[in-house]
Structure formats: structure tokens, C-alpha cells
């Protein structure tokens, strides 16, 4: 049985003659331990899909099944990392943020155990020395690592990442992708990753869902073995394939409007 199954999921915010905002009739499955990338142009419904799975948006129709059970409300079994750097609670230290998350999810846990686990996850993302710092004292990259540490500390079945490294520069981005892969290798957490960066999608994902205008156009298996090198001709082929699909989706009307 797949870990998560999405069946004919539809969520429309608004629609006009020319199109609609949201997603329509989206169906796919994600197996335990898989990294699935969701790629598409801005406004193609990637984030909507993720928010529906996380339970922040209710769908108009269709089902989301986690381990065969329907989910509709947010819960720690599907932990999401949002866009933006303001996700840590500013009144708690970094360690405090992790402990608060674990304590909220598991009320019976004892404090010593939580502290030990917080140290473990901080070390996993390389922030051991920063546990006492408050969010305003951390850089953007450190916050991103902290989000990952907190997310993993609550031991979710599914990790949902919404363009998680979008605010980082190229080097920071690469470092975070490597870190994510290392963490995934260690914990085996199932991940759905939304991105508009083809390279990021290929490097990280086992499977790639290509979205155009609110519908799931392609469900592609990533044929490349890890680690994936951009110099590899097979990588370039795969990149070209995805790129062509997305280019076809280019909104010509919008482009014309800009030219006019």
C-alpha cells in the first residue's frame, strides 16, 4: 500500500473562461521512503496541492489517504516547511523551538529525553552550537536548517517542502540540497518537494510530477542514479524533457501582454 494516495483531488479558488486558479482532478501515489518532486510554473497549483495534503486547505472534491485513512485536518504526521523565513517562534530559543514542537506532539515525553533529542537533531543539521540562540540571531541558511531539524524532530510520516530553499543564494541552496539528501539517507522520511527549479527537482527526487495549469500532466520516474551530476548526458536529456514540457506551458498571453 502506498503511504499517501491522492484521488481526483480538486480545489478551485476562482475560475474564468480562460482558466482557473487551483488544481483539478489530480491523482497520484507516493510510496514510503520516496522523494517526490512537484514542478511547474508559478501559479500552476503546486502549493495548493501541498496545502491540501497538509490539511490547511479543504478540497472541493477528491480524497487524500494516508495509510489508507482519509485526512482533512493539519497534523504532525504531515509536517510542512513553508516558504519564508518566519517559521520559528521568536520567543523561544532554537532548542526551545524543537522541544516545544516535540512536547506538543508527544505530551508524555520527559524533559530529559526531549533535550537529548533536540541536541541530536540540532547536531544532525550542524546547529549544535546555536541551540541557545533566538531566531533573530540566526542567518537565513541557519533558519532553513532549523526548520528541517524541527520538522524531523516530530518524526512525521511525510515531509512537505514548499520551495524550501527559494530564498537562498546558489551556494546555500546547493548546501541545503546536500543536507536534505543526507538527512533523507539517515531517516528515510518520505518527502514531497515543491519547486520551480528543474535542477533541484532532478537532483533530489525519485519521481517528478509535472504540473501545468492546475493539472498533473506527467508523472515521471527519475531514471538517473544518485548522486546526479549535471555533466552527465542522461541528466541533460532528462532536464531537456522537463524543460520542454514547461516551455509548452508558457503562458503566451501573459508574454504578449508584457511585450505590448
Amino acid at each position: 500500500m502506498p503511504l499517501i494516495r491522492v484521488e481526483s483531488l480538486t480545489k478551485i479558488y476562482s475560475s474564468t473562461k480562460e482558466g482557473f486558479a487551483g488544481i483539478r482532478e489530480v491523482s497520484f501515489e507516493v510510496n514510503e521512503g520516496e522523494v517526490v518532486g512537484v514542478i511547474g510554473r508559478s501559479g500552476c497549483g503546486k502549493t495548493t496541492l501541498l496545502r491540501c495534503i497538509a490539511g490547511f486547505e479543504s478540497s472541493d472534491s477528491g480524497k487524500i489517504l494516508l495509510d489508507g485513512k482519509s485526512v482533512s485536518r493539519p497534523g504532525p504526521d504531515r509536517f510542512m516547511i513553508f516558504q519564508g523565513l518566519d517559521q520559528l517562534f521568536p520567543w523561544l530559543s532554537l532548542r526551545g523551538n524543537l522541544i516545544f514542537a516535540m512536547k506538543t506532539v508527544n505530551k508524555d515525553a520527559n524533559m530529559k529525553e526531549l533535550q537529548r533529542k533536540a541536541e541530536y537533531y540540532l547536531e544532525l543539521v550542524g546547529l549544535s552550537e546555536w541551540g541557545d540562540c533566538y531566531p533573530y540571531q540566526l542567518s537565513g541558511g541557519m533558519k532553513q536548517r532549523a526548520f528541517l531539524a524541527r520538522a524531523l524532530s516530530v518524526n512525521p510520516r511525510l515531509l512537505l517542502l514548499d520551495e524550501p530553499f527559494g530564498s537562498l543564494d546558489a551556494l546555500g541552496r546547493k548546501a541545503m540540497q546536500d543536507l536534505l539528501l543526507r538527512l533523507w539517507g539517515k531517516t528515510g522520511t518520505t518527502i514531497i518537494l515543491v519547486t520551480h527549479d528543474i535542477d533541484e527537482c532532478i537532483r533530489l527526487s525519485d519521481r517528478i510530477l509535472v504540473f501545468t495549469k492546475g493539472t498533473l500532466k506527467f508523472n515521471l520516474i527519475n531514471p538517473l542514479p544518485r548522486p546526479r551530476m549535471s555533466e552527465d548526458p542522461a541528466y541533460m536529456d532528462f532536464y531537456g524533457k522537463i524543460s520542454r514540457i514547461l516551455e509548452k506551458d508558457a503562458n503566451l498571453k501573459w508574454a504578449n501582454a508584457v511585450l505590448r
Binding site: 497538509a54 493539519p74 497534523g75 513553508f82 516530530v154
Partner: peptide, 12 residues
């Protein structure tokens, strides 16, 4: 910030 409220909801 919306993100902080949603993190809270995400934690249950």
C-alpha cells in the same frame, strides 16, 4: 505571521 500560526496548527 501566518507561517507561525500554521506551524502551530501543523503540530496539532
Amino acid at each position: 505571521p501566518k507561517n507561525q500560526v500554521e506551524v502551530g496548527k501543523n503540530l496539532g
